[in-house]
């Protein structure tokens, strides 16, 4: 059957699913039951990184303006679109038709988009925030 499929695609985090067995050994003073000694559970990274699957997207970072926030070129960012953008959050925004990573800031009653790199100037937000913000970044997946 396998040869029929050109490609197998899974929309969720499946490829990154790492099953790490958790061994929960007990010390028993009575009669030990070998079966009871191992409560085996697997850890699913989805549980850690994805709260709202329908609203969660993965994107790949390019460029160095967010180094200060720990976002390096080629890192994968976890974006949860269901989270309300607040001051201080790192967000993906649509700027001049391009998806861009910035830190959202509220300065003197006005919204600003800041980089984590002094070489890049702040960008004031003129439109409604809903139109600009694409999603809120919750995690960075960075290989070391």
């Amino acid at each position: 059957m396998l040869h029929q499929f050109k490609q197998v695609l899974f929309p969720q985090l499946k490829p990154s699913k790492v099953f790490i067995p958790l061994f929960n050994g007990k010390v028993s003073a009575g009669f030990p039951s070998p079966a009871d000694d191992y409560v085996q559970k697997t850890l699913d990274l989805n549980e850690l990184l994805v709260q709202k699957p329908a609203a969660t997207f993965f994107v790949r970072a390019q460029g160095e303006s967010m180094l200060g926030a720990g976002i390096h070129p080629n890192d994968i960012l976890v974006v949860d679109r269901s989270i309300e953008p607040k001051s201080g959050k790192i967000v993906i925004c649509a700027l001049n038709g391009e998806l861009t990573v910035k830190r959202l800031a509220r300065v003197k009653g006005k919204w600003k988009l800041k980089s984590e790199n002094l070489d890049y100037p702040d960008i004031p937000v003129h439109e409604e925030l809903e139109l600009v913000v694409w999603g809120v970044v919750t995690n960075v997946i960075h290989p070391v």
Partner: peptide
């Protein structure tokens, strides 16, 4: 691209 179903085809976001 298969933006949502293939790790090699994620959308690029710019840190610029």
């Amino acid at each position: 691209k298969h933006y949502t179903t293939d790790w090699n085809e994620l959308v690029d976001v710019m840190c610029v």
